[in-house]
Structures are given as structure tokens and as C-alpha cells.
Nucleic acid binder design. Structure first.
Lengths: 226, 226
DNA sequence: ATAAGGTACTTGATGCATCTTTTTTGACGT
DNA sequence: ACGTCAAAAAAGATGCATCAAGTACCTTAT
């Protein structure tokens, strides 16, 4: 789904990094989960070296942390941290939406509509994973339309951090997740930057409510073994 | 000067990463410079492993790039990319300044004034390196005062990318680099978020002008050998 | 003198052995 | 049962050997 920086030549470490990024963003890891380099090496069928490389990059992204020198885990998320990420997203996705509203072609808008329609169907079908992916795809489309690759990368890293915390929230949220995507598309059609920005901000604040709830009231499950 | 995520336990790879970050932000690398893992390993007196780890992290930060599978270099900066980074900084440092204006204690303000005074002296003395460092320190203080560590990290990565492109620009800029820091401090004293934001935006746009000039008119020097 | 072809070298990627420290585990005593 | 402590196992860090691919250089034939 989400293609990463194609620029990088395909190493094993990039493959592993990409796979782990996908897993993270799809909520296939839970906060507290432990990662073991040797186990992952076995899963990926490589030596430990490419795994270490990928782990180090993920740690650099703060998507995983070293709780202690030998304990690699998916970190928890303090409420303050989530609120900070949300505030950053509002500024950055607001910028992306404004710029996209000025530059969007009809092809861009069509692509957004396709994603939104598929997302709708996924939610109807109760396909949580697909719904999550398509929601993310929608958000990543805006900086892409806006021609803002740096911004896109920053958001990708933020999503890497949010991934483990949104898995269950989407079920609770249901259609609320995409309700605000319609006005975004409308604003882009009208080339109305202010409206596009406001719509995406609404989406971040209101659509993201279940995520915050979960972080605050903690759907605490015991840390799993890797 | 700039302390990084203290959370990480001190590995060799973190030491190398930190050292390279410092070098990058101090403008000790030029765009086009080539990095060789074995050479760096010799310089740092380690094996190649920790160097590779650090290089991979820096590449993940897009502070260095793999021009081809065996050619690690300091990347150039397209004008569009610089403009994008500037737009992002405006949004994020604006947020930091607003929040800092609400939260700043007198101790925070004092710390800023100390940095600014030292920066002034460094510029008087023509100490380009110190001036650069203190300017960065000033900018990093705002998200710190605002209690926004995620934002701080994003900005750090952006500075990593800008580092190689600002070295000479500062000399040309001279005092213009810090002229706009005074109104920032004034706004923080008055707890005036809007004024703080505007001041920092002025700094980014006007103070950063020489950097943009250099990128556009390229102070192109031939790529050095590492 | 020049260009083609091939050889040697450079260099990052990968795998693996080993080191040190942490984590786990289980025995023991309270 | 519970906590403590020590031995054993685990796990990341580091170094290094080797691989493959790209680069540079040198030979050789025209």
C-alpha cells in the first residue's frame, strides 16, 4: 500500500525496514511487544545484520525503543505525546491540505475519491485492516498531491509511532474515521485551501478521538511475548 | 552543544551518530562530499559495524544519501526542497514559539538571553562556527521550553539536512541571523503567542535568506574527496 | 596516440563468531 | 508463598571475513 522512498536501492535491510513499517502501521504490533533480533532474523530468513540495520532505523524513528540495552520494545504512548503529535499533524497536514487544494488536478481528485470509496466498502465489510490502510493512504495522498515529500516523510514517521495505538480504536470509531474525508475532497474540488485545511483538522481531532480515548483509558493488555 | 535523545544508551553507534550529527550541523561537510565507511572506522578507531549503523541512521534521516549502492554522499538541496523545509519550519517553529510563549518561565527567558548574548559576541568575534551553533541552540530552546520533544526531533532532522548548506551563508548574513531573536524573547516575556510566532517566522524567512541565495546561485565547489 | 578489453582494487552488504551484559530461571531460605 | 540470589541462558554490540558489484587502471592491439 504505502510505498516508501523508492530512491533507496533494495537491500535486505530496506526490505526488512519496509516490512516492519507496514506491520507497525497496520497495528500488527501492540505497545509493550518485545522484538528480538535473532527471532526476526529467523522469520525473515536472513542473518541478524539486516535486521539490526532495520531495527536501528526504526529506533531512530522512535517507532521502537530500547527499554534497556537488551530489551527492544514497542513503546507506550503518553497522552501528552499523543496530543503533541496531533498538534504537529494539524499544522503539517493543514499545510499539505492547503497546498493540495491549490494544485489538485482532476486526476488527483479522482484518486482520492477511489480511495475514499474503497475505504467506505472496507468499513461496511468490517475489514478493519483495510480500513486502516486506506485511511492512511488518504492522508498520505495530500502531501503527495501538494508535492511535499519532506512533509510526507515526517508524517510517515509519526504514523509509525501511532500505528500500535490505533488498531482497536478504528472499530469503535467506525465511519467517523472517514466522515471528514468528504469535505476535504469537496474543498479540493473548489480549490479552497482554508476549507481543505479545516476539514483535515476536523478529521484529525474528531476522527482521532477513539485513539486518544484508548491511550488515556488504556486498553491495557499484558505485554506479549514476541 | 545540542544534546540528543538522552534516552538511548551509549553505544559506539550512538557516539558515531552524535559526532556525525554535530559535524553535519556545524557545516563541516559540504554537499557532494563522499563518506567511506572504512575511512570513518579508522578515524573513529572502531570497526566498520558501528559506522554502518550510524550511516544507516543518517541515511534514514535523509541527511546523507546513497547516490549509488556504494557511493555515500552528502546530498545537494534543490530549491524546492529548501522552500518546503522552510514552510514546515514556519508551521512547526511557529507552534513551538506560541506554546513557549504561554509556558516560558523567567529561567527559560534568562537562558535564551544568555544564548543570544553569547551569539552576539560570537558574531562580533567573527566566530562563524560558534555563531551557527548558538543560533541553532536558540531555535532548539523554543520546543524545549514548550515541552514538545517530538517537534524538537523533527526540527533536529531538518537541521541535519540544512547543515551542509548554511556554512558560508552565515558570514554573509552576519547579524541578520539573530536580529529577529530579540523580538522573540520580548514576545515570550509578554506571554504573547502571536507575536512570538510572527517573530520566529520573520527569523526563518529573513534570517534564512542567505541560505536560499546560496542554494539558488550555488556556491558550487567541486565535490571533495573524503 | 587512442580505444577496447580485461584485471585489480575499492567498497558496501551480508553472515557469523565472540564478548559483555542483561534477563531469566530456579533453587533456597525466610 | 514470597523474596533473594546465583547460575545459566539470552541477547544486543562489536569485530571481522567474505561476497558481489562497481570503478579505475593498465595492457595491448590498432
Amino acid at each position: 500500500m504505502a510505498e516508501f522512498t523508492i530512491l533507496e536501492h533494495e537491500n535486505l535491510n530496506s526490505v526488512v525496514y519496509g516490512a516492519l513499517c507496514d506491520a507497525l502501521m497496520q497495528g500488527r504490533f501492540q505497545p509493550g511487544d518485545r522484538l528480538k533480533i535473532r527471532d526476526l532474523a529467523e522469520q525473515f530468513g536472513t542473518s541478524v545484520t539486516p535486521i539490526r540495520d532495520a531495527i536501528l532505523r526504526l529506533a531512530n524513528d522512535e517507532a521502537i525503543t530500547f527499554r534497556s540495552p537488551r530489551d527492544i520494545r514497542i513503546p507506550g504512548m503518553a497522552e501528552s505525546r499523543y496530543r503533541e503529535i496531533r498538534a504537529i499533524r494539524i499544522r503539517l497536514e493543514g499545510l499539505a491540505a492547503e497546498t493540495a487544494a491549490q494544485l489538485a488536478t482532476s486526476a488527483d481528485i479522482h484518486a482520492l475519491e477511489v480511495i475514499l470509496r474503497e475505504n467506505e466498502q472496507a468499513i461496511e465489510a468490517g475489514d478493519r485492516l483495510k480500513g486502516t490502510q486506506l485511511n492512511q493512504a488518504f492522508h498520505f495522498m495530500l502531501p503527495q498531491i501538494a508535492g511535499l515529500p519532506v512533509l510526507n516523510n515526517i508524517l510517515r514517521r509519526l504514523w509509525l509511532q501511532m500505528g500500535p495505538h490505533i488498531s482497536d480504536a478504528y472499530i469503535q470509531g467506525g465511519r467517523a474515521m472517514i466522515d471528514h474525508h468528504y469535505p476535504v475532497i469537496e474543498a479540493l474540488k473548489r480549490h479552497d485551501p482554508a476549507a481543505a485545511s479545516m476539514a483535515i483538522v476536523d478529521d484529525i481531532l474528531l476522527g482521532g478521538k477513539p485513539i486518544l480515548e484508548r491511550i488515556v483509558h488504556g486498553a491495557e493488555r499484558p505485554a506479549r511475548r514476541a
